[in-house]
Simulated assay, not measured.
Amino acid sequence: MDLRIFTEPQQGATYDTLLSVAKATEDLGFDAFFRSDHYLRMGSVDGLPGPTDAWITLAGLARETKRIRLGTLMTAGTFRLPGVLAIQVAQVDQMSGGRVELGLGAGWFEEEHKAYGIPFPKEKFARLEEQLAIVTGLWATEVGKTFSYEGTYYQLTDSPALPKPAQAKVPVLIGGHGASRTPRLAGQYADEFNMPFASIEDSERQFGRVRAAAEEAGRRGDDLVYSNALVVCVGKDDAEVARRAAAIGRQVDELKANGLAGSPAEVVDRIGRYQAAGSQRIYLQVLDLDDLDHLELISAQVRSQLS
């Protein structure tokens, strides 16, 4: 079971804070550092000092880390033109020596679009399908040849399809709860399917849909990695769990019901139940980015039991 650290910097974090978490992620043996792609805080927090851009952040981290994978859950399709995104991701992949993964979603948080003057189209999912075709098509085009695309929302003519990523294939992540369109897109384009903030039962059901969609697309269900993203709150004892829950404005009982919370033994047991449902990788949503002791505890007493 791979454990990856997943951050939500729009809630309030500087690049230096994210760098500290990424370096701890690497030093403590976790598999990867991922971040959300949002420009506006959610909930009652003030969001200070303000947002950081996902791909600028990952470009910096690419030069300041050596081992861990780097990526997004999920890059918002509404934020970037697909041709530009293909260039950005390929460049960061080169900067990292081939450690980048692209999670790409349709975009959903209308308020942040209003706050920063970003168009929020109605046909987001249809645009996402074209974006996936374009990004993967540009990367797959042989050097010396060109790529063209005639879609409803995007048209590309004789693109040189450069630069190329360092990796032969940048892993593409698709995720979500949708019962039909999401599995279909994942079955066609995804290297990994991620089920965010879902129960064990809902995860198992959705993994099954994606497997079936992959087979309908002429692939094997096992061609994809299946993963979950879950909030994490671990403590050596009940008092420490309660303190960490309070620090992120959550209740312990709610976290235990909807995430990975409690003692290391409780969290290991719950991860095992997700694994039995088909999950191969867990993205641990860490909400208090100043609490590096939390990461140390998870590494020493959770990760060590799962490797």
Score class of each variant (00 low, 15 high):
151 G>C: 08
151 G>A: 04
152 T>E: 15
153 Y>F: 15
153 Y>V: 13
154 Y>A: 14
155 Q>W: 03
155 Q>D: 13
156 L>I: 10
156 L>S: 01
159 S>M: 13
159 S>G: 00
162 L>A: 04
164 K>W: 09
165 P>D: 04
165 P>M: 15
167 Q>N: 14
168 A>N: 13
169 K>A: 00
169 K>H: 15
170 V>F: 09
172 V>W: 12
173 L>F: 15
173 L>V: 12
174 I>N: 09
175 G>N: 08
175 G>E: 03
176 G>Y: 03
176 G>I: 09
176 G>N: 07
176 G>S: 08
178 G>E: 14
181 R>G: 00
181 R>E: 01
182 T>D: 14
186 A>L: 10
186 A>Q: 03
186 A>I: 02
189 Y>E: 04
189 Y>C: 07
190 A>Y: 01
190 A>T: 05
190 A>P: 02
190 A>E: 05
191 D>N: 13
193 F>K: 04
193 F>V: 02
193 F>W: 12
193 F>A: 01
193 F>N: 00
194 N>V: 07
195 M>S: 11
196 P>Q: 05
196 P>H: 06
197 F>R: 02
198 A>N: 02
198 A>T: 12
199 S>T: 14
200 I>V: 15
204 E>H: 07
208 G>K: 03
209 R>F: 11
210 V>R: 06
211 R>K: 13
212 A>K: 02
213 A>N: 12
214 A>I: 09
214 A>K: 05
214 A>N: 12
215 E>H: 08
216 E>A: 15
218 G>Y: 10
219 R>H: 14
220 R>M: 11
220 R>Y: 02
220 R>T: 10
220 R>F: 04
221 G>A: 10
221 G>E: 07
221 G>N: 06
222 D>S: 07
224 L>R: 02
225 V>F: 00
227 S>P: 05
227 S>V: 04
231 V>H: 10
232 V>G: 02
234 V>G: 09
234 V>M: 06
235 G>W: 14
236 K>R: 10
236 K>E: 14
237 D>A: 05
237 D>E: 08
238 D>V: 01
240 E>Q: 15
241 V>T: 11
242 A>W: 08
243 R>N: 11
245 A>N: 00
246 A>P: 08
246 A>Y: 00
247 A>N: 05
248 I>F: 02
250 R>C: 06
251 Q>H: 03
251 Q>D: 15
252 V>R: 06
253 D>G: 07
254 E>W: 10
255 L>Y: 04
256 K>P: 00
256 K>I: 09
257 A>S: 03
257 A>E: 15
258 N>R: 12
260 L>S: 03
261 A>T: 09
261 A>E: 04
263 S>H: 15
263 S>F: 09
264 P>V: 11
264 P>F: 05
265 A>W: 03
265 A>Y: 03
266 E>A: 08
267 V>D: 12
268 V>Y: 07
268 V>F: 01
272 G>R: 08
273 R>C: 08
273 R>L: 09
275 Q>C: 08
275 Q>K: 13
278 G>W: 01
279 S>M: 04
279 S>Y: 01
279 S>D: 06
279 S>E: 05
280 Q>R: 10
280 Q>I: 00
280 Q>E: 09
280 Q>F: 01
281 R>E: 09
281 R>F: 05
282 I>K: 01
283 Y>M: 14
285 Q>D: 11
285 Q>L: 10
288 D>P: 02
288 D>E: 13
288 D>C: 02
289 L>Q: 06
290 D>A: 15
290 D>E: 12
